[in-house]
Design a protein around this nucleic acid. Structure first.
Lengths: 114, 114
DNA sequence: ATACTATATTCAATATTAGGAATATGGAAT
DNA sequence: ATTCCATATTCCTAATATTGAATATAGTAT
């Protein structure tokens, strides 16, 4: 596979609004699937599919943590500049600062910790 | 169309090896279709199709100059940084310095000028 | 063991894209 | 006006992608 084909594959993975939004979440740090479910307001199976596409493209990977599976960028150094161009710079105000999910399922956990 | 969808459209246009190669040519300056024909070694109709896709995506535009149609980047300032990340920096050695085509059809013209 | 929960996979209908062959267009030259 | 040439478009089929519905899995808690 030559360079152009390789890059085309990368862009193909990026060429989807939901996947872009997932990457926009993940560039702020690792997040579990249920979090994305809450943010994207899409069914879990659908998100899982898009995550699989991103994983197949080598952009993200996952690790299991208790009940949840956390996804993260495989190579932030390579991807973040591209995402900055595509999605604009990261603004502090827009960051999800919680390491835990803020989705309905996970929120209880956070609250319980305070 | 929200921001993610818009960006996804852009990436979709980039998600093709031939189109990337065309953009790699055009980031060095405007070129005629016959030039791309010579560089890409693809049939003219096929190149024309890919150019149409790029034009529809708003990435390139064309101007007629005599018999030839020259294509160029619509917004180099926006696109060049993205292409640098995708295709690497522009090297002087790799530039097509001729304003005329170097394809078989055009080479004669260049030679005649010397 | 059972039941629940988070996530993953499979399947199927539909939509889109790739890329070739044939043909059209429109300007220039004669 | 006709021919020629560069480029554009249309049409078609195979391959691939999208997305929803249903179902599977695997780990946890009881």
């Amino acid at each position: 596979m030559n360079d152009y084909a390789e890059q085309a594959q990368l862009f193909k993975a990026l060429a989807h609004p939901v996947r872009l939004q997932i990457l926009d979440i993940l560039r702020r740090g690792a997040e579990c699937v249920c979090h994305m479910e809450a943010v994207l307001k899409k069914r879990q199976a659908y998100i899982s599919q898009q995550l699989m596409t991103l994983r197949d493209a080598g952009l993200v990977d996952s690790r299991k943590d208790g009940l949840n599976v956390f996804y993260f960028l495989v190579d932030p150094d390579a991807l973040l500049p591209l995402l900055e161009i595509a999605l604009g710079p990261l603004e502090d105000a827009s960051r999800h600062q919680l390491r835990e999910c803020v989705c309905p399922h996970c929120e209880a956990v956070v609250v319980a910790q305070n």
